[in-house]
Amino acid sequence: MDNDQPNVTADGQIMIETKGLSRIYKTRGKTVEAVRGVDFSVSSGEIVGFLGPNGAGKTTTLKMLTTLLTPTGGSARVAGFDLRKDPVGVRRAIGYVSQAGSTASEARAGEELVSHARFYGIDKHTATQRARDLLAALDLADIWERKCGLLSGGQRRRLDIVMGLIHQPKLVFLDEPSTGLDPQSRANLWTHIRKLRDEIGTTVFITTHYMDEADALSDRLLVIDKGEIVAEGTPSELKRRVSGDAITLTFRDDADARQAGDAAAKMPGAETPVVEGHLVRVHVPDGASALPALLAELARADITATGVEVKKPTLDDVFLSLTGRSLRD
């Protein structure tokens, strides 16, 4: 299996590459273009967030990349294998954690894991050993004999992740991993996902419609809307590119504010400042580095700000400005 992977051998190599990947559904005479030719690539060792509102084409794209759905157009290489020509090769190399779950309620956790590993040709002894190690790593050491239906939401989701990792895939797809979890379980899950990459070097492709999740986990984001990739970059790049940071300065009087407004307008990349009474509002690409220079300049003119605020845009703002719609459901 290793000799058929020309472009995935070391870090920095391409793990996913799509060219015009698309999917058309035909239902009752109507044609729905769920995914309209997406092109992107994911390098080995990256955590890439795939972001978009419900119905944007996230799940359809994910199902194509995991061989659960045949593309109607375009092509892709996943983990070094051609999606169309060698879906079985792709299946051997990837892990997939669906938002629907992976285990029967009546089944016992350990048995589900070992039986799943058998599909990859892993013998029972090795499977048991790996399953126990992975369960321990995800704080699930004592659930072997438990029925999956009796686990808590967070435990069951981590069990799904263990299931997706049992054959030590190089690439893992996580579909909306924290949906339905309480804040504490989410934070805990994020820690585990980061560890996957940091400690084992697994490439992680994660879909989400939660901005904070994308922000907290991803090295890079792909934003999809109406079946097309509308933006791509690191979370901070995207935020910077779209709206910049909002700086709000407060002064003793209106005269100071007007003078400060003129100074703020000269900052590199600044949008025209808005002066309201003794408040000045201005957007700059990087507020944290621009602010000290501005304050120093004002000090030379003997103007002191009485209040300073820098607000980073959220990915919600990014999404809103890209698509004109909010991500929140």
Binding site: T67, L68, R92, Y96, A100, H116, F119, M163
Partner: peptide
Amino acid sequence: DRMMVTPA
């Protein structure tokens, strides 16, 4: 789906 993504 979990079984379908395996090479089984």
